[in-house]
Design a protein around this nucleic acid. Structure first.
Lengths: 161, 161
DNA sequence: CCTGAAATAGATCGCGC
DNA sequence: GCGCGATCTATTTCAGG
């Protein structure tokens, strides 16, 4: 992934696309005071350099029946019984990938190893996910869950430095 | 926001748009075995009902110089000195909205009141954000920070129930 | 709720500046 | 790098089944 330098116009384009990924090239060109061709060239360059990773539609969790958002801290077993090759961390990462209710998972500093963001319908589904999936995984030693009460802010738009 | 029922085709369309929000209506129509007109009607309906909240471009944090991701737990002062009207929670929520490095903030169950997701350039910037912004806020009583070591998974695509 | 055709708008690329 | 203009492809609307 080649590194790239961004000028003011690039950053303006990125800010716009972070708010509305479906704007036409012409509209973007207008907003940054450029004609369509150079604007499109810049966008393509940003896509090819990987600055723009993906275009997506964001859904409303409530509207598709996902009424409960949980953050789950996970600590794994310390000892790697099968040596490094079959480390519990690699196995856990692979398992997480296959759990659709887990939308994000980061290895973290601190006393817990991982932080998971989990979307489910309700507490009953969460309970089932814990019992049948997370706590059943052999690498998991300990978990601590918190539940979202109110969304103050949640955006995919990164600050442009 | 009206509630809505989704059939199998709607869910298929949503799954597709969660992966690629820029697919042309024709391509989507092909994938769900529909002709362009009814496909477009369904998409419009999903947009108007608020199931699709927004289309956005996702950027690579590393490529725009954001090398550090932190999760910060925040606890606020208990006593509301100005009564309910000027509750520290309302003031804190408003402040959070104005901090661009905080991309997400939820009020949570448990001993900490809020969980913040914070993108910054490096530890120096994080330190500055803590000293000059977060810890300076009068409502903040206590904070605990953890830092992301590895991204195992991070997607905006919600599971379709 | 679908198909298909017609009108409108946008993306894309070569070339001159 | 930018902008113009020609071409091609997609979106959008509206007839009718």
């Amino acid at each position: 992934m080649p590194k790239i330098t961004l000028d003011k116009t690039d950053r303006k384009i990125l800010a716009i696309l972070q708010q509305d990924g479906r704007l036409s090239n012409q509209d973007i060109a207008d907003k940054v005071s450029l004609s369509p061709s150079p604007c499109l060239r810049r966008i393509k360059r940003l896509e090819e350099a990987g600055v723009i990773r993906q275009y997506v539609a964001l859904l409303d969790p409530a509207q598709i029946g996902l009424g409960l958002l949980a953050y789950v801290n996970v600590r794994l077993e310390k000892h790697s019984e099968g040596g490094l090759a079959s480390s519990p961390h690699a196995a856990f990462a692979k398992a997480v990938d296959g759990w659709p209710e887990v939308v994000a998972c980061y290895a973290m500093t601190g006393e817990m190893d991982y932080l998971l963001r989990v979307h489910v319908e309700d507490m009953e589904h969460f309970s089932r996910f814990m019992m049948k999936t997370l706590l059943t995984h052999p690498a998991v030693a300990d978990v601590k869950s918190s539940f979202a009460l109110t969304r103050i802010k949640d955006t995919t738009a990164l600050p442009l430095v």
